[in-house]
Protein backbone atom coordinates (compact mmCIF):
# COMPACT_ATOMS: atom_id res chain seq x y z
CA UNK A 1 0.00 0.00 0.00
CA UNK A 2 2.68 2.45 1.03
CA UNK A 3 4.84 1.30 -1.87
CA UNK A 4 2.19 1.98 -4.51
CA UNK A 5 1.51 5.37 -2.96
CA UNK A 6 5.18 6.19 -3.25
CA UNK A 7 5.28 5.01 -6.83
CA UNK A 8 2.31 7.06 -7.95
CA UNK A 9 3.69 10.05 -6.08
CA UNK A 10 6.93 9.68 -7.97
CA UNK A 11 5.14 9.48 -11.31
CA UNK A 12 3.12 12.62 -10.59
CA UNK A 13 6.19 14.52 -9.44
CA UNK A 14 8.19 13.36 -12.45
CA UNK A 15 5.50 14.63 -14.78
CA UNK A 16 5.51 17.96 -12.95
CA UNK A 17 9.29 18.08 -13.17
CA UNK A 18 9.22 17.54 -16.93
CA UNK A 19 6.44 20.08 -17.44
CA UNK A 20 8.45 22.58 -15.44
CA UNK A 21 11.49 21.83 -17.53
CA UNK A 22 9.51 22.46 -20.70
CA UNK A 23 8.15 25.71 -19.32
CA UNK A 24 11.65 26.89 -18.51
CA UNK A 25 13.63 25.32 -21.30
CA UNK A 26 11.44 25.25 -24.37
CA UNK A 27 11.78 28.93 -25.33
CA UNK A 28 15.55 28.58 -25.08
CA UNK A 29 15.67 25.47 -27.23
CA UNK A 30 13.48 27.23 -29.72
CA UNK A 31 15.86 30.17 -29.79
CA UNK A 32 18.84 27.96 -30.60
CA UNK A 33 16.88 26.05 -33.26
CA UNK A 34 15.65 29.23 -34.89
CA UNK A 35 19.14 30.64 -35.03
CA UNK A 36 20.17 27.65 -37.12
CA UNK A 37 17.39 27.99 -39.66
CA UNK A 38 17.31 30.11 -42.74
CA UNK A 39 15.22 33.21 -42.24
CA UNK A 40 12.66 32.06 -44.79
CA UNK A 41 12.08 28.85 -42.84
CA UNK A 42 11.43 30.46 -39.47
CA UNK A 43 7.68 30.51 -39.84
CA UNK A 44 7.30 27.37 -41.89
CA UNK A 45 4.08 25.55 -41.17
CA UNK A 46 4.06 23.15 -39.40
CA UNK A 47 7.10 24.28 -37.40
CA UNK A 48 10.06 21.92 -37.12
CA UNK A 49 12.98 21.94 -34.71
CA UNK A 50 15.44 21.29 -37.49
CA UNK A 51 14.95 21.35 -41.20
CA UNK A 52 16.99 21.08 -44.34
CA UNK A 53 17.99 24.75 -44.15
CA UNK A 54 19.90 24.17 -40.90
CA UNK A 55 23.32 25.83 -41.01
CA UNK A 56 25.57 28.18 -39.17
CA UNK A 57 25.09 30.83 -41.86
CA UNK A 58 23.44 33.35 -39.57
CA UNK A 59 26.25 33.04 -37.03
CA UNK A 60 28.77 33.64 -39.78
CA UNK A 61 26.76 36.64 -40.93
CA UNK A 62 26.80 38.16 -37.45
CA UNK A 63 30.48 37.49 -36.83
CA UNK A 64 31.63 38.94 -40.12
CA UNK A 65 29.61 42.13 -39.75
CA UNK A 66 32.02 44.57 -38.16
CA UNK A 67 29.30 46.75 -36.63
CA UNK A 68 27.85 43.74 -34.83
CA UNK A 69 31.22 42.50 -33.65
CA UNK A 70 31.70 46.01 -32.32
CA UNK A 71 28.73 45.55 -29.96
CA UNK A 72 30.42 42.53 -28.47
CA UNK A 73 33.75 44.30 -28.08
CA UNK A 74 32.01 47.22 -26.38
CA UNK A 75 30.19 44.91 -24.02
CA UNK A 76 33.39 43.08 -23.11
CA UNK A 77 35.26 46.31 -22.46
CA UNK A 78 32.51 47.75 -20.29
CA UNK A 79 31.73 44.55 -18.39
CA UNK A 80 35.38 43.70 -17.76
CA UNK A 81 36.20 47.21 -16.50
CA UNK A 82 33.17 47.21 -14.25
CA UNK A 83 34.07 43.84 -12.76
CA UNK A 84 37.69 44.82 -12.12
CA UNK A 85 36.91 48.21 -10.62
CA UNK A 86 34.04 46.85 -8.54
CA UNK A 87 36.13 44.07 -7.08
CA UNK A 88 39.12 46.31 -6.37
CA UNK A 89 37.21 49.18 -4.77
CA UNK A 90 34.68 46.86 -3.18
CA UNK A 91 37.32 44.76 -1.46
CA UNK A 92 39.09 47.82 -0.07
CA UNK A 93 35.83 49.29 1.19
CA UNK A 94 34.68 45.99 2.61
CA UNK A 95 37.97 45.60 4.43
CA UNK A 96 37.51 49.00 6.00
CA UNK A 97 33.95 48.22 7.01
CA UNK A 98 34.91 44.89 8.45
CA UNK A 99 38.10 45.81 10.32
CA UNK A 100 37.88 49.43 11.42
CA UNK A 101 35.52 51.59 13.37
CA UNK A 102 35.25 55.07 12.02
CA UNK A 103 32.83 57.93 12.55
CA UNK A 104 29.78 57.70 10.31
CA UNK A 105 30.19 54.00 9.64
CA UNK A 106 26.55 53.32 10.36
CA UNK A 107 25.37 56.11 8.08
CA UNK A 108 27.63 54.97 5.26
CA UNK A 109 26.36 51.47 5.64
CA UNK A 110 22.70 52.41 5.47
CA UNK A 111 23.41 54.73 2.53
CA UNK A 112 24.95 51.83 0.67
CA UNK A 113 21.98 49.60 1.42
CA UNK A 114 19.44 52.20 0.42
CA UNK A 115 21.05 52.86 -2.98
CA UNK A 116 19.84 49.43 -3.97
CA UNK A 117 16.22 50.38 -3.48
CA UNK A 118 16.23 53.31 -5.88
CA UNK A 119 14.70 52.52 -9.26
CA UNK A 120 17.21 52.99 -12.11
CA UNK A 121 14.64 54.97 -14.05
CA UNK A 122 14.59 57.53 -11.23
CA UNK A 123 18.38 57.83 -11.31
CA UNK A 124 18.52 57.99 -15.05
CA UNK A 125 17.25 61.54 -15.29
CA UNK A 126 19.83 63.17 -12.99
CA UNK A 127 22.57 60.93 -14.42
CA UNK A 128 21.75 62.20 -17.83
CA UNK A 129 22.37 65.74 -16.63
CA UNK A 130 25.59 64.83 -14.85
CA UNK A 131 27.01 62.73 -17.66
CA UNK A 132 26.36 65.48 -20.18
CA UNK A 133 27.87 68.07 -17.81
CA UNK A 134 30.99 65.95 -17.39
CA UNK A 135 31.20 65.59 -21.17
CA UNK A 136 31.10 61.83 -20.85
CA UNK A 137 28.00 61.32 -22.96
CA UNK A 138 28.42 58.48 -25.46
CA UNK A 139 31.65 57.13 -23.94
CA UNK A 140 32.57 53.94 -22.12
CA UNK A 141 33.12 55.95 -18.96
CA UNK A 142 29.48 56.98 -18.84
CA UNK A 143 28.41 53.36 -18.75
CA UNK A 144 31.16 52.17 -16.44
CA UNK A 145 30.49 54.94 -13.91
CA UNK A 146 26.75 54.40 -13.81
CA UNK A 147 27.06 50.62 -13.55
CA UNK A 148 29.45 50.99 -10.65
CA UNK A 149 26.72 52.76 -8.72
CA UNK A 150 24.63 49.60 -8.77
CA UNK A 151 27.35 46.97 -8.55
CA UNK A 152 29.57 48.49 -5.86
CA UNK A 153 27.03 48.48 -3.01
CA UNK A 154 26.31 44.81 -3.61
CA UNK A 155 30.01 43.96 -3.69
CA UNK A 156 30.74 45.93 -0.53
CA UNK A 157 27.88 44.32 1.37
CA UNK A 158 28.75 40.81 0.30
CA UNK A 159 32.48 41.16 0.89
CA UNK A 160 32.00 42.85 4.27
CA UNK A 161 29.90 39.89 5.30
CA UNK A 162 32.57 37.56 4.03
CA UNK A 163 35.44 39.33 5.75
CA UNK A 164 33.45 39.44 8.97
CA UNK A 165 33.45 35.67 9.06
CA UNK A 166 37.26 35.62 8.88
CA UNK A 167 39.00 36.09 12.17
CA UNK A 168 40.94 39.26 12.87
CA UNK A 169 43.77 37.13 14.15
CA UNK A 170 44.62 36.32 10.55
CA UNK A 171 45.59 39.95 9.88
CA UNK A 172 47.35 40.19 13.19
CA UNK A 173 49.43 37.13 12.45
CA UNK A 174 50.61 38.68 9.17
CA UNK A 175 51.44 41.95 10.90
CA UNK A 176 53.42 40.21 13.63
CA UNK A 177 55.45 38.59 10.89
CA UNK A 178 56.29 42.08 9.70
CA UNK A 179 53.69 42.38 6.92
CA UNK A 180 51.53 45.44 6.36
CA UNK A 181 47.75 45.56 6.42
CA UNK A 182 47.88 45.83 2.67
CA UNK A 183 49.75 42.56 2.54
CA UNK A 184 47.36 40.93 4.98
CA UNK A 185 44.43 41.88 2.80
CA UNK A 186 45.79 40.83 -0.58
CA UNK A 187 48.03 38.00 0.57
CA UNK A 188 45.74 36.25 3.01
CA UNK A 189 42.16 37.52 3.12
CA UNK A 190 41.56 37.78 -0.60
CA UNK A 191 42.79 34.29 -1.50
CA UNK A 192 40.65 32.79 1.28
CA UNK A 193 37.54 34.60 0.14
CA UNK A 194 37.90 33.57 -3.49
CA UNK A 195 34.51 31.79 -3.63
CA UNK A 196 32.78 34.94 -2.45
CA UNK A 197 34.70 37.01 -4.96
CA UNK A 198 33.78 34.69 -7.79
CA UNK A 199 30.13 34.98 -6.88
CA UNK A 200 30.29 38.78 -6.64
CA UNK A 201 32.35 39.07 -9.81
CA UNK A 202 29.95 36.92 -11.74
CA UNK A 203 26.96 38.82 -10.53
CA UNK A 204 28.65 42.08 -11.47
CA UNK A 205 29.49 40.75 -14.90
CA UNK A 206 25.90 39.68 -15.46
CA UNK A 207 24.63 43.08 -14.41
CA UNK A 208 27.02 44.96 -16.65
CA UNK A 209 26.61 42.63 -19.60
CA UNK A 210 22.83 42.66 -19.46
CA UNK A 211 22.14 46.27 -18.57
CA UNK A 212 19.87 47.95 -21.05
CA UNK A 213 18.31 51.16 -19.80
CA UNK A 214 21.44 53.19 -19.14
CA UNK A 215 23.15 51.82 -22.21
CA UNK A 216 20.20 52.94 -24.27
CA UNK A 217 20.03 56.44 -22.87
CA UNK A 218 23.69 57.27 -22.33
CA UNK A 219 25.14 56.16 -25.63
CA UNK A 220 24.15 57.36 -29.01
CA UNK A 221 26.34 56.15 -31.84
CA UNK A 222 26.43 52.58 -33.07
CA UNK A 223 30.10 52.17 -32.25
CA UNK A 224 29.38 52.70 -28.55
CA UNK A 225 26.34 50.46 -28.24
CA UNK A 226 26.47 47.27 -26.20
CA UNK A 227 25.05 43.85 -27.07
CA UNK A 228 21.56 44.22 -25.54
CA UNK A 229 21.02 47.44 -27.45
CA UNK A 230 22.52 45.89 -30.56
CA UNK A 231 20.06 43.03 -30.47
CA UNK A 232 17.22 45.42 -30.06
CA UNK A 233 18.47 47.64 -32.87
CA UNK A 234 18.36 44.67 -35.22
CA UNK A 235 14.62 44.53 -34.72
CA UNK A 236 14.08 47.70 -36.64
CA UNK A 237 17.10 47.73 -38.89
CA UNK A 238 16.82 44.49 -40.78
CA UNK A 239 13.10 44.16 -41.28
CA UNK A 240 12.99 41.18 -38.95
CA UNK A 241 15.87 38.98 -39.91
CA UNK A 242 14.86 36.52 -37.22
CA UNK A 243 17.58 33.96 -37.65
CA UNK A 244 20.32 36.59 -37.37
CA UNK A 245 18.64 38.12 -34.35
CA UNK A 246 18.45 34.72 -32.70
CA UNK A 247 22.07 33.98 -33.58
CA UNK A 248 23.08 37.24 -31.99
CA UNK A 249 20.96 36.50 -28.92
CA UNK A 250 22.63 33.13 -28.52
CA UNK A 251 26.08 34.67 -28.95
CA UNK A 252 25.19 37.43 -26.51
CA UNK A 253 24.02 34.95 -23.89
CA UNK A 254 26.96 32.59 -24.15
CA UNK A 255 29.44 34.51 -21.93
CA UNK A 256 26.97 34.74 -19.08
CA UNK A 257 25.86 31.17 -19.62
CA UNK A 258 29.41 29.82 -19.47
CA UNK A 259 30.13 31.74 -16.31
CA UNK A 260 26.91 30.52 -14.88
CA UNK A 261 27.37 26.84 -15.59
CA UNK A 262 30.91 26.82 -14.22
CA UNK A 263 30.26 28.84 -11.13
CA UNK A 264 26.62 28.10 -10.35
CA UNK A 265 27.51 26.45 -7.03
CA UNK A 266 29.28 29.54 -5.74
CA UNK A 267 26.64 31.72 -7.19
CA UNK A 268 23.70 30.00 -5.55
CA UNK A 269 25.57 29.89 -2.25
CA UNK A 270 26.28 33.61 -2.53
CA UNK A 271 22.70 34.39 -3.50
CA UNK A 272 21.06 32.51 -0.70
CA UNK A 273 23.21 34.18 1.91
CA UNK A 274 20.88 37.13 1.56
CA UNK A 275 20.95 40.80 0.70
CA UNK A 276 20.68 40.22 -3.01
CA UNK A 277 19.72 42.49 -5.83
CA UNK A 278 19.38 41.02 -9.28
Amino acid sequence: MVGSYKKSMKVILSILLILGGLFAGFPIIWMVCSSLKANSAIFSWPPKFFDETASLASYAAVLTDSSKVRFFINSYIVAASVVLITLFVGILAAYAFSRFDFPGKGIFNSLIVSVQAIPPIVLLIPYMGMIVAMKLFNTYFALILTYLVTTLPYCILMMTGYFNTLSKELDEAVMIDGGSRWKALWGVLVPISLPGMVSVGMYTFMQAWNEYLFALALTQTTDMRTVPIGINLLMGQHAYDWSQMMAMSVLGSIPVLIFFIFFQKYFIAGMSSGGVKG
Binding site: A24, W209, V256, G278
Partner: peptide
Protein backbone atom coordinates in the same frame (compact mmCIF):
# COMPACT_ATOMS: atom_id res chain seq x y z
CA UNK B 1 14.98 25.80 -14.20
CA UNK B 2 17.38 28.65 -13.56
CA UNK B 3 18.10 29.25 -17.24
CA UNK B 4 15.39 31.87 -17.94
CA UNK B 5 16.93 34.10 -15.35
CA UNK B 6 20.35 34.13 -17.02
CA UNK B 7 19.15 35.70 -20.24
CA UNK B 8 19.26 39.41 -20.69
CA UNK B 9 16.08 41.37 -21.14
CA UNK B 10 16.60 42.06 -24.81
CA UNK B 11 17.10 38.39 -25.55
CA UNK B 12 13.98 37.54 -23.58
CA UNK B 13 12.04 40.20 -25.41
CA UNK B 14 13.15 39.19 -28.87
CA UNK B 15 12.71 35.49 -28.19
Amino acid sequence: YILPWVFTASVVAIL
